[in-house]
Simulated assay, not measured.
Amino acid sequence: MANPWRGDVALVIDGETYVLRLTLGALAELEASLGAGSLMALVQRFEGNSFSSADVLALLKAGLRGGRAGVSEETLFHGEIEGGPLAAARAAAELLARAFMVPSV
């Protein structure tokens, strides 16, 4: 079960629910995968609704690793995400938001 107090976000891929989390290690991997970009630039892209599908996939991949979900890149790229691309983008945005703020009660 996803715990928002820990920064967890749930995502259903191929009918199975996974818990994603951006740990410090996952954030570092995400930052490295962005190359010259920064996490703040990524936050700004999401806040301005100018993110790319590559941004969404990078966030989901980092969140799956941080949550120790054990999902392969192949499954993430080709699996059926419940709710489609919109749900994937929503989960990525929630991951990013929860990594940098405390959930309200």
Results as ranks from 00 to 15, higher is better:
Gly67His: 06
Lys61Ser: 15
Asp55Lys: 09
Arg65Lys: 15
Val43Gln: 12
Gly25Asp: 08
Arg65Leu: 15
Val19Leu: 07
Ala41Glu: 13
Ala32Asp: 09
Val71Gly: 14
Val43Ala: 10
His78Thr: 15
Leu86Val: 12
Asn49Asp: 12
Ala91His: 06
Leu76Glu: 11
Leu39Phe: 01
Ala54Thr: 15
Leu22Ser: 03
Leu76Asp: 07
Leu57Lys: 12
Gly48Asp: 06
Glu29Ile: 00
Ala54Cys: 04
Arg98Ile: 04
Met40Tyr: 05
Ala58Val: 06
Ala26Pro: 01
Leu24Ile: 10
Arg90Gly: 01
Arg90Phe: 04
Glu80Ser: 13
Glu94Trp: 10
Gly63Glu: 08
Ala36Val: 11
Ser33Lys: 04
Ala99Asp: 07
Ser33Trp: 00
Arg65Gly: 14
Phe100Asn: 10
Leu95Ile: 11
Arg98Asp: 07
Thr23Ile: 05
Ser52Pro: 07
Arg21Gly: 02
Lys61Leu: 15
Ala41Tyr: 00
Ser52Val: 10
Gly48Pro: 02
Ala97His: 11
Val71Ser: 14
Leu39Trp: 00
Gly83Glu: 06
Ala93Gly: 12
Gly37Lys: 01
Gly63Phe: 03
Gly67Asp: 08
Ala62Ser: 15
Leu30Gly: 04
Pro85Ala: 13
Gly48Thr: 06
Gly48Lys: 12
Met40Thr: 08
Phe51Arg: 11
Leu34Gly: 03
Asn49Phe: 10
Gly67Thr: 14
Gly84Ile: 06
Arg68Ile: 14
Gly35Glu: 06
Ala58Thr: 07
Val19Cys: 06
Tyr18Glu: 03
Ile81Val: 15
Val71Met: 15
Gly84Trp: 02
Ala89Met: 09
Leu27Asp: 00
Leu86Pro: 01
Ser50Trp: 00
Leu39Thr: 05
Leu96Cys: 09
Glu16Lys: 12
Ala26Gln: 02
Leu34Tyr: 00
Gly67Ile: 13
Lys61Arg: 15
Glu73Ile: 14
Gly84Phe: 02
Ala93Phe: 02
Leu60Arg: 13
Leu24Ala: 08
Ser72Pro: 02
Gln44Lys: 08
Ala36Pro: 01
Gly83Tyr: 03
Thr75Tyr: 03
Gln44Thr: 10
Gly37Asn: 05
Tyr18Asp: 03
Glu29Gly: 05
Leu22Ile: 03
Gly63Leu: 13
Gly83Lys: 08
Leu27Gln: 06
Val71His: 11
Ala26Met: 03
Glu16Leu: 09
Glu29Tyr: 00
Gly15Ile: 02
Leu57Ala: 14
Val71Thr: 13
Thr23Tyr: 02
Ser53Asn: 12
